[in-house]
Amino acid sequence: MCGLCGVLGAEDHWTDAAGSTRIFGNAGASRTRRQERLRRVAIGNKILAHYGLKLSDWQGSAYILRNRTGRQEIVHNLAALWPTAEALAGRRCDPLDPEVIAAMNRSG
């Protein structure tokens, strides 16, 4: 737990590379945990924009997901992000949806 804000430390998730130099070498060493989180937010937002959602980092320990009506939810990792995104967007978030793939290709 963080002594300042009282936030419980998040559990490690398999998607975390920062600090794992044994597995990711420079890819793990060159980014701090916070940089990796911000990058994850940036990439996530390119996809979430398709659903009218916006993700932001919260205190380096969680993420806040908002929809256009202002509803927001806290999520702790990527696995928890997608069910929450579907609930806030009111639709399925499917990476195999041809429309989503086309949108990704346009923004890429």
Partner: peptide
């Protein structure tokens, strides 16, 4: 992969 596994 997390998005794929959530849906499929």
């Amino acid at each position: 992969l997390t998005m794929l596994l959530n849906r499929h």
